[in-house]
Amino acid sequence: MAKRVLMSGNIAAAEGAILAGCHAFFGYPITPQNDLLEHMSRRLPPLGRIFVQTESELSAINMVLGASAAGFRAMTSTSGPGFSLQQEGISYMAGMELPAVIVDVMRAGPGLGSIGGAQGDYFQATKGGGHGDYRVLTLAPASAQEMMDLTMLAFELADKYRNPVVVLADGFLGQAMEPVAMREPVAELPGKPWAITGARGRPKNVLNSLELEPADLEPRMQALVQKFEMMRQNEVRYESLDLDDASMAIVAYGSASRSAMTAVHMARQEGLRVGLLRPISLFPFPYQALSDLAQRVDDFLVAELSFGQLVEDVRWAVGPNHRVELVNRLAGVRLSAEEILEAIRKMAR
């Protein structure tokens, strides 16, 4: 068994990026992701890799764009307000088909909100976020181990699809320390013949999203749409817990799913047949898994740290013939297993 090390989620994500061959980190301090940036400032330069603390998240994402265009694995990490600023660059990278990894350690909002953990960036991360027609793969870790593993996966998928990938964590996951089994470093990185490497012995490479003629742009956008469809087909990930005999399913991701897991155990002790479906990929969302589940489960309870964002996808997936209710806390207030249990009892009555 791999050696287990006690690590916060933020540090686990940083170490996962290093193992995945991330060559460059560009970022701007914002709570609650600061220790990720600080860790990279210590870890990357001795490895001969690049760390730059930028003047803004805008600059950070555009440095990521440049590093990625040059063929390197590159990332940034941020939280809500910074993630908003980065939507511009993420849209450009989606349009230019550039891989990148963005770790968003969500805090509460809107606006400056609070630095407490929350999940209010769900729509922004899963529905496009910036301007124009695009999607980013969105992975939702629920433990320090997954902060490492899904960050590594994010780099792999970003290169596979030439598209930005968001690791959507939250302040609780970022700060909590848990045992993490260390992974092997990625031995071989994919070749990138499209990269900006100097036009030596080959025609020039141009990376852009602009086509002045709509007739020229449309086929490019159609190709993007096909790519997003491929993601929908190939990259759905979720975890099922105690769903085999369940008459009620909780749906929750990230740190909310941890409380939901405890709530399921507590409910089972009371004889309530409750299970948990935990989406790991938020885009693509496990619509099919939920709609299959709806064939045999009556009630759905969505637990989230936002005002009802995840619940919309669940409603869409299970259709109008099921009860779908929401239990949530906002503003950085934790959602306890006891509160979820109470909602389960109410719904089971």
Binding site: H23, A24, F26, I50, V52, T54, L58, S59, A60, N62, M63, V64, L65, G66, A67, S68, A69, A70, G71, F72, A74, E88, G89, Y92, M96, I196, T197, G198, A199, K204, N205, V206, L207, N208, S209, L210
Partner: peptide, 28 residues
Amino acid sequence: YFKFDGLESSHGRAPASASGIKRCRPDL
């Protein structure tokens, strides 16, 4: 219009993107 490699950047951010390239590939 140039025969060498080219990159688009978003409005105003060209120095950041150029820095990202240069930091990773000092020979470019």
